[in-house]
C-alpha cells in the first residue's frame, strides 16, 4: 500500500484501532502507573494523550506497542488482544505501527535515506519497495530534498521529521509518538504537529503523548488527560488543560 493510497476515515473491519478495557498497570506495590483505564480510539483518529510527568502517558503507549503487559484488564490493538510480551507476536504487531520517541533518534553513521530505509531493510523488504517507499515517506515529512544529509548536519526538528518518516515508511495504519517535540522550540514543534496532522489526513491513526501545551491548544484535536494513572478527561476537541502540573 502506497502512502497516497491510504484514504482517510476508518478502514472496514477495524473501526476501533485501540481499545483499553479497565486496564491497570502496577510496577510495584505502590500507586499503579495506570488504574482502571477505559478508552477507545477509532481508526483514522488523531488523539493527544496529555498529563503531568508520571501521569502514565508513556505506560499507556508502551501497552499499545506491546512493550508492557497490563496487570489487569485488556488491551486490543488493530483487532489483536495483547496479553503481554510473551503472549503476542511483537514483531508482527510492530510492523503494523510506527513508533517515534524523543530519546531514540537516528543512527549517526547513516544518512537520511539510509536511516529511513533501515526500517524496511530489517523487516526483509526488497530494493524495489525501499526505492518506492523511502522517497514517499520523506516527501510526507518534508525532507525529500535532503536524502544525503547525515544527522549531525540536521536541526533537531529535521531529525525528528526523519524519525517520523522512518516510523511511517512501512505504511503502518497506526503511528505512536512519545514526546515528539520534547527538545524543540515552539515554531519547530508546530512544524512537527503539522506533519503529524498531514499523516493523519492521509488515513493513519495518530496517538501523541505530549507535554507541549501550545501544540495541543493550537491543533484542537481529541485530548485524553491522565492524572496519577487515571483517565480524568476525554474531550473530542480540546486543549492542553490549565490544571496539569508535574506529579513526580
Amino acid at each position: 500500500m502506497r502512502l497516497d493510497d491510504r484514504s482517510a476515515g476508518p478502514r472496514p473491519g477495524f473501526p476501533r484501532m485501540i481499545v483499553f478495557d479497565n486496564v491497570t498497570v502496577a510496577y510495584s506495590q505502590e500507586r499503579p502507573a495506570l488504574s482502571g483505564v477505559n478508552l477507545t480510539i477509532t481508526d483514522g483518529a488523531f488523539t493527544y494523550i496529555v498529563g503531568a510527568t508520571g501521569a502514565g502517558k508513556s505506560t499507556l503507549l508502551r501497552l499499545v506497542y506491546c512493550d508492557l503487559a497490563p496487570t489487569q484488564g485488556a488491551v486490543i490493538v488493530d483487532g489483536v488482544r495483547l496479553d503481554g510480551r510473551r503472549g503476542c507476536d511483537v514483531p508482527a504487531l510492530r510492523r503494523r505501527m510506527g513508533v517515534v520517541f524523543q530519546d531514540i533518534g537516528l543512527l549517526p553513521d547513516r544518512n537520511v535515506y539510509e536511516n529511513v530505509a533501515f526500517a524496511l531493510r530489517v523487516i526483509g523488504a526488497g530494493h524495489r519497495k525501499i526505492r518506492r517507499n523511502v522517497p514517499d515517506a520523506l516527501e510526507l515529512v518534508g525532507m525529500v530534498h535532503r536524502p544525503d544529509a547525515y544527522p549531525r548536519q540536521l536541526s533537531g526538528g529535521e531529525q525528528q521529521r526523519v524519525a517520523i518518516a522512518r516510523a511511517l515508511v512501512n505504511n503502518p495504519p497506526l503511528l505512536l509518538a512519545d514526546e515528539p517535540t520534547g527538545n524543540l522550540d515552539p515554531d519547530t514543534s508546530m512544524g512537527i504537529a503539522e506533519v503529524l496532522d498531514r499523516i493523519n489526513q492521509a488515513g493513519t491513526t495518530v496517538v501523541v503523548a505530549t507535554h507541549d501545551q501550545p501544540m495541543v491548544d493550537a491543533m484542537q484535536r481529541r485530548v485524553i488527560e491522565l492524572s496519577r494513572g487515571r483517565l480524568v478527561r476525554d474531550e473530542e476537541r480540546g486543549g492542553y488543560g490549565a490544571s496539569i502540573s508535574d506529579e513526580a
Binding site: P91, R95, V99, V122
Partner: peptide, 14 residues
C-alpha cells in the same frame, strides 16, 4: 544498542 533498539521498534524478529 541504539541500532538494536530501533530494529526492535520497527518489528525486526529476534
Amino acid at each position: 544498542r541504539r541500532e538494536i533498539a530501533i530494529m526492535r521498534l520497527v518489528g525486526a524478529t529476534r
